[in-house]
Design a protein around this nucleic acid. Structure first.
Lengths: 354, 354
DNA sequence: ATTAAGAACTTAATTGATTAAGAAAGACCG
DNA sequence: CGGTCTTTCTTAATCAATTAAGTTCTTAAT
């Protein structure tokens, strides 16, 4: 069964290839009879329809949006914040009738040309660490690009929130409740897989821009409140998982004196901190306040968090890309909102009652 | 700024197009000097690299796997079972260095050629209702296809579980606990958006094959236990959401006599039923037993459920497709497992104590 | 009868690459 | 010095379509 192309059908019927093409793409250009015969022969020969790649080449459009995410795909699909964004992006793609091509990052050493070979009309890049080679590859494609959260690339639309301000809002919430002994648990600062305490130098050297700035917001708010940041225990984890959050929670809650409030980076981490608190029999929010971030998994658990418009961001990214892209404003900052639920309260009066 | 192609660079340097192509795809065929000069000129002209579409056409491979899902994409991303499957599939795609092209279904009336135009090497079709036009389009592409869960397409590999057996296992669990007053809440039987009671005729006419068979398993187990299926209240919802589950729960729990056990179709629905029970102040599992399905959102809530190997299924689907596809066995049935947690127990002795 | 319009196809250029096979030139060897 | 290898590039076929412009042929109007 050799390959069947337009030409095969044309030859069989003694018509030109163009005629057969018209039968598929512009039926009104042909007489009914011929069109029907063409379709019959196509069927009979098992023709699979106009080759999409050839079509795409000729028409100069791919009909797909490329999506690049910092992590392995399995991980991306496990992150509620990413999922929320994907939903928005997918909806925009759907409305435009284009597909969403999820690209794996070159992982470890294996050379992968997925970015170079991706048949797409535009790229959406999300949460890449500073200087990641995939970003250069994307920019090299000279297609419309938007980047989400990080890193900021001059000349291309950026979508995100005012990270320092949002983080400061979160921190001020617990500070205003009266907390002075703060602990911080964060994920996604570096991509070296490190889990453990991070000193200020390491904190500031974070390769994920958004998280670096988020952390700066925490620091700012703390220092405004007269807290010495160097004395704030800061635990960094490598994965955004509940388990990692629990580990961070145990580390932080094992400090002497024990923090009365823990700021986190993501809701998932915060849930893990709650687990740790439960392990230790600590009452939340009575004995410990916990702040999430992103409002991606917070509601059920009653977590206080910063709500981000994930889906709106995704939809906006999609629309930007599908409408030609580059024209939009440089930096699109989305609103965020402090959502106070049941995981934060004033600190205990005599915190260390045993 | 006209378009820059291999030819542009070739002309500029007075070499042949082939030479420039070699500079990119097989650098060892060229002298170092020329290769370097080519790269310089490419850079200078802003060449975006070999056009992936043209490349794909010439090489006859797309470097992507197409994924088709029954629902809108936003919905798919909200379904933990689908997400789990995606994770597995994405991992397989990642390992092979290919992308995952998520395709929107033609939605409503809007004609969409996404399936016809998708630049992919194979398709994974998941959970399509009987007779959905998109399936015919996929098959028409004559590419390797696997279908997951439903519908079974003779001649193409199928991945799923033994639905009737798994469902019967779930039902027998509550029956063996002693329950006799069973209620059922299911989603995904029809795609007409209907929410409400479903009589046996409508149940059997479900257009989603897997769910139809799952339901049949419930019926079988009930009848084995001597329960008249016609008397089993059966509530159907249109969306797999917690809210829909709550609604179904209220409907079922409002019946007289009140069911002591509720079987559901998905964990998400079961969570909603738990919400309804909580609304009514019913103790679970003391006064009501609830069964989930798929183990996709069950753990935290302590839901008894049937565990499915979602990720393994996704990975297997990916591997099958990437290894040529059609060669595999016809029907790949994956293991399932009853996971008993805290949402099921023996029925109350005097069920209707007010 | 003549001409214009319309319908139904065909011609041929175009989309942007890859790659086997061939050619020209220099290197190496006896 | 003649022959054989290499290295370095070129030629030309190929991948599978789309579509503007041109050619027939028929039909209708003047």
């Amino acid at each position: 069964m050799a390959k069947v192309t337009l030409q095969t059908i044309a030859d069989r019927l003694g018509v030109s290839r163009a005629t057969v093409s018209y039968a598929f793409s512009r039926p009104d250009q042909l007489s009914d009879g011929l069109r029907r015969r063409i379709m019959e022969v196509a069927d009979e020969l098992g023709y699979a329809g106009p080759n999409p790649t050839a079509r795409s080449l000729r028409l100069g459009r791919a009909g797909a949006l490329g999506l690049l995410f910092s992590e392995t795909l399995a991980y991306a699909f496990a992150d509620p914040y990413a999922i929320g964004f994907f939903q928005g992006l997918a909806t925009a793609a759907e409305d435009a009738g284009v597909g969403l091509l999820i690209l794996p990052l070159p992982h470890g050493d294996r050379r992968s040309d997925t970015v170079r070979d991706a048949v797409v009309d535009a790229f959406c890049v999300m949460s890449l660490p500073d200087g990641h080679p995939a970003l250069a590859e994307v920019l090299g494609r000279k297609l419309p690009v938007v980047v989400v959260d990080e890193p900021y690339v001059p000349g291309h639309p950026f979508l995100g929130i005012d990270e320092p301000a949002a983080a400061a809002t979160a921190a001020r919430h617990v500070l205003e409740l009266g907390h002075r002994r703060i602990g911080v648990a964060m994920v996604g600062l570096h991509d070296d897989g490190h889990t453990g305490w991070a000193d200020p130098a390491r904190q500031e050297g974070a390769v994920f821009e958004a998280m670096r700035r988020r952390r700066a917001g925490y620091q700012l708010a703390c220092e405004e409140a007269g807290i010495d940041w160097a004395g704030v225990p800061f635990y960094e984890v490598a994965r955004n998982s509940r388990e990692a959050g629990r580990r961070a929670g145990h580390a932080l809650l094992g400090r002497e004196p024990r923090p009365t409030a823990i700021l986190t980076n993501t809701d998932v981490l915060a849930l893990g901190v709650l687990d740790a608190a439960a392990d230790l029999g600590l009452e939340v929010p009575g004995e410990l306040s916990v702040m999430g971030f992103s409002d991606s998994a917070a509601e059920e658990a009653g977590l206080t968090t910063i709500r981000q418009a994930k889906q709106e961001m995704g939809a906006a990214a999609g629309r930007l890309l599908l409408s030609g892209g580059a024209a939009g404003p440089e930096r699109l900052l989305f609103p965020y909102e402090l959502v106070v639920r049941a995981s934060t309260a004033a600190p205990p009066l005599r915190p260390d009652r045993p």
